[in-house]
């Protein structure tokens, strides 16, 4: 089949391995996500806090600059687990905003135009399809979460005049683990919610609502029932607790409101399972008519 002849020729070349089809999906999903100027704007905006924290580390480790700018006042500039916790929290909530924008772009275009029958008629499974999109989202969110956090950790390790790194290595582990838990949860939740809505704007709203509405409900439950268990519905509080424990930062919760690790892990696993069930119901090549 050549353009000038307009005739058909069979393909005789080699085929790529099966696993690489997931990479193809991820590559096209990334291109789709980053083709939007709003994505670029959100990403740029999400780098601003990282720059502020970078300056903070610079000032904390540079006595001359610190003396000139802070005039010797170093309050709040000790570079420790609490410092990185604040940074991780900020970056994580920016990651939520990016998820709410990107995740619908990855799925709703396919659903709105009924592309799944064609996509899944190729040698790619439903799991492969979702996993490809998941990888694209994880890669995008990594750019605003654990990558800048670990880069700043590395900068702090480099800048610190005292031996600092080995004593604080758990912070790096916490940053990586905490970020990965959060972006994996956001990715699967974002894809699942997007798969049920054909309009992107609505999907964006639903993703925010899925995080904050249960938090409100959990608050009401806690207040009415006078129990701490309502906090299990409060994703912001629960994640802050998880990050704080992973980084080894001082707790911000009142002593009686501490949630057990098992309960928090169970809630996260439940949220993921519900998301998987939602994706399983929606990502199909054909609707099955019952009855």
């Amino acid at each position: 089949m050549s353009i000038y002849k307009h005739s058909y020729r069979a393909y005789m070349g080699t085929l790529t391995p099966h696993w690489s089809r997931i990479v193809v999906l991820a590559r096209y999903a990334l291109a789709e996500a980053w083709s939007s100027k709003i994505t670029i704007a959100l990403f740029t905006f999400s780098m601003l806090p990282a720059i502020v924290y970078l300056v903070g580390i610079y000032l904390a480790n540079n006595p001359l600059a610190s003396a000139l700018i802070l005039r010797g006042n170093k309050t709040g500039l000790s570079i420790d687990a609490a410092y990185f916790l604040k940074m991780l929290e900020g970056q994580s909530w920016l990651a939520l905003a990016i998820t709410a924008w990107i995740a619908p772009r990855l799925i709703t275009f396919d659903l709105a135009d009924n592309a799944l029958p064609i996509l899944l008629s190729h040698p790619i499974s439903r799991f492969g399809y979702v996993f490809g999109k998941f990888l694209a989202l994880i890669a995008s969110l990594s750019l605003v979460t654990w990558i800048p956090c670990l880069l700043l950790f590395a900068y702090q390790a480099y800048s610190s005049p005292q031996p600092w790194t080995w004593d604080h290595l758990s912070i790096a582990g916490g940053l990586l683990t905490g970020s990965l838990i959060w972006i994996a949860l956001l990715s699967i939740l974002g894809l699942a919610l997007s798969s049920w809505v054909k309009w992107r704007v609505v999907a964006t709203g639903i993703i925010f609502a899925a995080v904050f509405v249960p938090a409100g409900v959990g608050g009401i439950v806690s207040a009415v029932m006078r129990t701490k268990w309502g906090l299990l519905l409060n994703l912001p509080v629960m994640m802050t607790e998880i990050w704080q424990r992973l980084l080894g930062a001082p707790s911000v919760m009142r002593p009686r409101q501490d949630l057990p690790n098992q309960a928090m892990a169970t809630m996260l696993v439940l949220a993921c399972l519900v998301s998987v069930a939602m994706l399983n119901a929606r990502v199909r090549a054909r609707e099955v008519v019952r009855g």
Binding site: Y11, G13, T14, L15, T16, H18, R21, V24, L25, Y28, F109, D110, A112, D113, N114, A115, L116, P117, I118, L119, H122, P123, I124
Partner: peptide, 22 residues
């Protein structure tokens, strides 16, 4: 059944890559 915001070449290329073509 297509992806409406892709142009023709990109869509067909995407499908061909999914089918295993480099």
């Amino acid at each position: 059944s297509f992806i409406g915001n892709m142009n023709g070449v990109r869509f067909v290329r995407y499908m061909a890559e999914l089918a295993g073509l480099p």
